[in-house]
């Protein structure tokens, strides 16, 4: 509830009503796109992705908006199911990742110099190897599959948000009201829950939503190279890597539509995150 209250307070700081309306509309449209993808993925039945050799290799039509593949499976249904799966994987991974980021960020800023330097060393450690290589390594260590992808994503995406949270807490600690609170003899825990958490929650949510695009793209990439979700899942990475074998036969719809949909989903998350940040972050409210 705190989160909502802060949001409504900050909104009134934005001078132009127009811009706010535009921002809100962009967010609502993006949210509708995402929700409809998720509902489509859940509601569309499995019978449309069953093997149906009579309808093989059909070009896009009204009945099959994205065409069908070499087994006669409807590409639209496969794409929607794949995207839903990607969003779910991204959600779990991003949530876990941002939780790590918040815990370590707060620890780094409050628990003394030694812990701070250990955590900054950890951040450096995770940034020292390219994400994709780390993901391959972790997926290999866990034997591939969904578990490997989620754990890999969760372990690789926290450092940047961790730095943001750390800086934010550092700044909060030196604010006057926190200093006064401390002088008044309030307990550390009291200050953290009453003064710091309310400020951090919006940062956390924006960070979480902005982690999504990275998580989903990395999930698709690692699945695409063959180290991620198993081929039984209707994942976008699987669809695209399968479509590579049929590129030279001119079946362009196999790769074109699923990739485009992935782009739209990632972009929607990005728009929601950026606009939310504009709404709740006073530093950026004037842009």
């Amino acid at each position: 509830m705190n989160f909502l209250r802060i949001m409504t307070q900050k909104k009134s700081l934005i001078p132009k009503l127009n811009l706010r309306q535009r921002t809100l509309i962009a967010m609502i449209v993006s949210a509708i796109i995402l929700l409809s993808v998720i509902f489509a993925g859940i509601l569309l039945g499995d019978e449309r992705i069953a093997t149906n050799l009579e309808n093989r290799n059909l070009a896009p039509s009204l009945d099959h908006p994205f065409g069908t593949d070499w087994l006669g499976r409807d590409m639209f249904t496969r794409t929607m199911k794949g995207l839903t799966l990607s969003i779910a994987v991204g959600l779990i991974a991003a949530a876990a990742s941002s939780l790590i980021a918040v815990v370590l960020g707060i620890l780094a800023a409050t628990a003394g110099k030694i812990i701070d330097s250990i955590i900054s060393w950890l951040v450096d450690l995770f940034l020292s190897v390219p994400h994709l290589v780390t993901l391959i390594l972790i997926a290999f260590a866990l034997g591939g599959g969904m578990k490997g992808v989620i754990i890999g994503l969760a372990l690789t995406h926290w450092p940047s948000l961790c730095r943001v949270i750390r800086a934010e807490v550092m700044q909060l600690r030196s604010t006057e009201y926190v200093q006064i609170s401390r002088k008044l003899g309030k307990k550390r825990w009291w200050i953290v829950t009453k003064h710091m958490i309310p400020h951090l929650i919006p940062q956390f949510f924006v960070g979480l939503i902005l982690l999504f695009p990275h998580a989903i793209l990395h999930e698709a990439a690692i699945t695409f190279v063959g180290m991620g979700l198993s081929p039984h899942h209707p994942a976008i990475g699987i669809i695209l890597s399968e479509s590579m074998r049929y590129l030279s036969t001119g079946m362009w719809w196999l790769a074109f539509f699923p990739g485009l949909c992935l782009l739209i989903v990632v972009r929607s998350f990005d728009i929601i995150g950026e606009n939310l940040r504009m709404l709740i972050d006073p530093h950026r409210a004037h842009e």
Binding site: L240, L263, V266
Partner: peptide, 8 residues
């Protein structure tokens, strides 16, 4: 461009 999958 930033939200486009490279392999796509």
């Amino acid at each position: 461009l930033a939200s486009t999958p490279t392999f796509w």
